[in-house]
Design a protein around this nucleic acid. Sequence first.
RNA 1: GCCGGAGUGGCGGAAUCGGCAGACGCCCGGGACUUAAAAUCCCGUGAUGCGAGAGCAUCGUACGGGUUCAAUUCCCGUUUCCGGCACCA
Length: 802
Amino acid sequence: MKYNYTEIEKKWQKRWEESGIFKAQDDFTKPKFYSLIEFPYPSGAGMHVGHIKAYSGLEVVSRKRRMQGYNVLFPIGFDAFGLPTENYAIKTGIHPRNVTDKNIERFTEQLKNVGFSFDWSRVVDTTEENYYKWTQWIFLKMFENGLVFRDTALVNYCPSCKVVLSNEDSQGGKCDICHSDIVQKSKDVWYLRISQYADKLLEGLNDVDYLANIRMQQENWIGKSVGAFVYFNINGGEQGEKMRIYTTRPDTLFGVTFTVIAPEHPLIDKYRDRIKNIAELDAYREQCAKKTEFERTQLQKTKTGVKIDGISAVNPLNGKELPIYISDYVMMGYGTGAIMAVPAHDDRDYEFAKKFGIDIIEVIKGGDISNAPYVGDGEMVNSDFLNGYNNKKDAIAKAIEVLAEKGIGEAGVQYKMKDWAFNRQRYWGEPIPIVHCPKCGIVPVPYEELPLRLPKVDNFEPGVGGESPLAKIDSFVNCKCPRCQGNAKRETDTMPQWAGSSWYFLRYIDPHNDNEFANFEKMKYWLPVDWYNGGMEHVTRHMIYSRFWHRFLYDIGEVPTKEPYAKRTAQGLILGSDGEKMSKSKGNVVDPNEVVSEYGADVLRTYVLFMGDYTSATPWSDSSARGCKRFLERVADLYGMTKGSGSTPELESKFHKTVKKVSSDIEDMKFNTAIAAMMTLLNDIYDHGSLTVDEFKTYISILCPFAPHLCEELWEMVGGKGFLSMHEWPSYDEAKTVDSTVEIAVQINGKVRATVSLPVDCDKETAIGIAKQNETVAAMIDGKTIVKEIVVPGRIVNIVVK
RNA sequence: GCCGGAGUGGCGGAAUCGGCAGACGCCCGGGACUUAAAAUCCCGUGAUGCGAGAGCAUCGUACGGGUUCAAUUCCCGUUUCCGGCACCA
């Protein structure tokens, strides 16, 4: 058959669309499968082949599930709010709405070109009113439940993008969007209290099946630390004034020789009058404030600090007076912003103590503290009631018990995860549905007034001082207070990019519902998402945020499951053919449309899965892609071979083995070896020269999820009924996957010297007997003493001689 | 610094309850077909040595040790690369 892929692919894409076979049915009696891929941000650059690889994995799984009789929900949508579109609008003056529509159109065309089996009737666009209405609705629910708060704070601010960024968006002190250095700036910030969900997000990981490294990154991000709070009296302070510190090592309290507070700690301003060297402290604090977070945490590893003259701390366990230092190695944002320093057993405290000439007291034996801090386990000394304890765990438990008894401390838990800075001074985002009323204060927009629509503007440039473009729209800003009907002003900031994607998987379940974000009965059927695949870069942001929103919705009874995603995997990148990450500036980007027109969609789909391990990064290779084209062309010619002499038991057995391997490899995301197995079988068929019609049907059935256009065409040629895409997945006979005889390697002293053919279930004696009859083997053991004979059935025979 | 993952032919990668290393594909070489080229098909293809040849031997999975009849796989040490976190008390 002439493989006219362009014609075939257009033909079947049209038929699939007209027949609607990929639409998910709301038939709750059928077994369901919800497979989810991360919906794309519709950028102006269009899709690249990395997107295709990201979607092809679950595309194959989804198609296999349909053939296995599942009711499959495999949706697609667009995460379309965001900065690049807005920046493009600023540059060109074209409205983001128009830019977005155009980009979505382009993406849709590209996706359809590849023949993905998405349910196109459920497309979601986060920038549409009937979508962001519900994003705002969920925000108001959070507000209602005390998870939204406003604070003036030092925030991560990107001077180039002119926006406040969350910690997640400014990792490493760089803006995640434009990679400029971020600076600290005091701003009014809306926060979502995600920290309140830290424990739930951590525990939830026990109920889901995520790849190990994904789980690890999330745990790391949440950063739970178990320790204790201890209250130190302040010498020179007010009566009863305590300095609260957080430590993970309350067992070392007798080794404390000083304390340190963060430069921003409120204690300093409170006791300005009593501190004798306040000018020196202020100078140091000013110096710290100028440093970016990046400089403070990444570059500056040598300790600096100033001793406070005028107040001091008192160790609550032994009454010892301790100096208080300020130093920027203590962060205001973690714990209490104050620490007890145990230089003998902490690297940082040790360095500080050495520099400032502070005492170092050993409380754990095992090291030489005159040379270096000892951080290992050991016997407690110089520690009163803790003396003699031999391990950290017991000593900590005892210390906490005593602290609690005396009312000078308590067990405590800290998380690295901070609350989520949730506002951006930007136009192209969901307006935050809040009204500022001079009388009533902060008032939420009533639910019935949603959606709070984005007004039309002409100028998308953020205001001076970084205020939102919406602030310039008087008709938007000026409003009536929903509570007292007096004149009030609207919040003009919008939500961050991550808002819309925090719940989109719920909307897919019921995308056209005008009364609720999704029908509960439908959610009960479809949730959780059975399998979610996406990029590693979203593990600590999108994944954490959406798990948080979902868990909140569960807590208020709006969704039926605690966790949104039962299983999560991640694909590896496709690198440019130069081995570098694909980027426009390097000119190594591969456009899927070009590959489709040159080789066909089936080749593109097959190649992105064949090119290497699905979860690893692999460079693109045009010539390897051509190899996949040859493969499919040879498959196309297979039909002619059904007219030959038929099959053999050997070939039949190979079919059963291949069906088995392809079936299980797809489940394990080992698409590359699944395709390799089909190639091997194809070579075997070619060697044999013919196959039966049933075998041919089996072959195109297992290949169908990978190369569906070609397989549908061949199915039609061979007289198959209906769509192959909906035809049943082939089964295999386990018995026929086992050969009656096996080729076994015979080793002499561990080196392979011969190969013999053995019955599959033969016993040890028979195996050794047959092996010894082999000429080479016989010659090599002739005249030698046999020390040992090892037989691993179906694997190997090893004869050890001397 | 800490926590993960990885290091296999010219290339992408297979094979890990320890059991014939290099499946499958690419590249490359030789041949067939063709006036010729492309395409296609067939053969070869880890390295080194020996042999006219079928073939044989030795080495070989980052490096150095170890356990074992047998190690890409397990253990100890070293090293390089990638990813994440990073003064988190």
